[in-house]
Structures are given as C-alpha cells and as structure tokens.
C-alpha cells in the first residue's frame, strides 16, 4: 500500500489515513524523500489526525523522515497527533523533541511559512 503525497505550491501534504504497517511506513519514507528531491519542495506537512497508534517503530520512521528531509533542505511539520497517541508516546519514552508539530493542518502550514521565512 502507498500513501498519497500531494503537492501544493512549494509544499507537500500528506494525510495518513491507514493503520501503518512497517513496510508501508518504510515505503512512505522513500517516496517522500524522492518526491522532495524531484519537486524541490521546501516544506512538508504530515497530518496524523486519523492515526490511532504510533508504536516505537513508526515513531522512529517519522523521526527519521524529519531529519532526512531536513538534510535535504525541507522542513517537516507533524500535525493532528491525537491525545491518546501523545500519551502513549510519552509512556513509551518517546518525546520527539526535535520534531516540529502543530495542532492541525492549517496551523502546520502557518508554522511552515513562519519557519521558512526566518
């Protein structure tokens, strides 16, 4: 299964709507990096509103995607993390401290614009 990546001006938008298995998560990581490369996008929003579980593997993939995109020159913002998911991540001991987040897609886009203007 592949997660669709939409392009909007200089940004890439992704809304994860499925229960992520490991293979799909890894595939998404690859797809996003090549999409950043070919489109020259400077900002990415990954919306997690419909994701109701993030375990240590998915957390690692998401954290890695943020650092890898950063290396390529694109800022990533994660949006819409559910309260239950946030609590579970803290129990797991995963703080995603260096990862920019925002409440929802709209706030995510605002955050990106601010970061890219700085």
């Amino acid at each position: 299964m592949r997660i669709p990546i939409l392009k909007l001006h200089n940004y890439l938008l992704i809304s994860i709507q499925i229960d992520l298995d490991d293979q799909t998560a890894i595939q998404f990581q690859e797809d996003l990096l090549s999409k950043i490369h070919e489109s020259g996008s400077t900002g990415v929003v990954i919306d997690l509103t419909s994701v109701d579980i993030i375990d240590s593997f998915i957390a690692k993939v998401l954290g890695d995607v943020v650092s890898m995109s950063d290396l390529m020159g694109a800022k990533v913002v994660l949006t819409g993390i559910q309260p239950a998911v946030a609590m579970t991540l803290i129990d797991l001991g995963i703080h995603l401290q260096d990862v920019p987040t925002a409440l929802d897609l709209e706030q995510g886009l605002i955050k990106l614009r601010q970061e890219l203007e700085e």
Binding site: I53, D55, P83, A84, V85, T88, D91, L92
Partner: peptide
C-alpha cells in the same frame, strides 16, 4: 494482532487512551 487486541479492549470497556496503550504494547 494490535487491531484484534484493540477490539477486545473496547469490548471490555477500556477508554480510547487505554485502547491506544494496549494496542501499542501489543505492537511492540
């Protein structure tokens, strides 16, 4: 496994936060 576990947790009466905790533990 985590989907079945979550369904069972829901039937037992766990709330959404505990359902997420249980599903995550099963996943690990």
């Amino acid at each position: 496994a985590r989907q079945l576990g979550r369904d069972i947790a829901k039937k037992i009466g766990f709330g959404t936060v505990d359902q997420a905790r249980i599903a995550t533990a099963i996943s690990e």
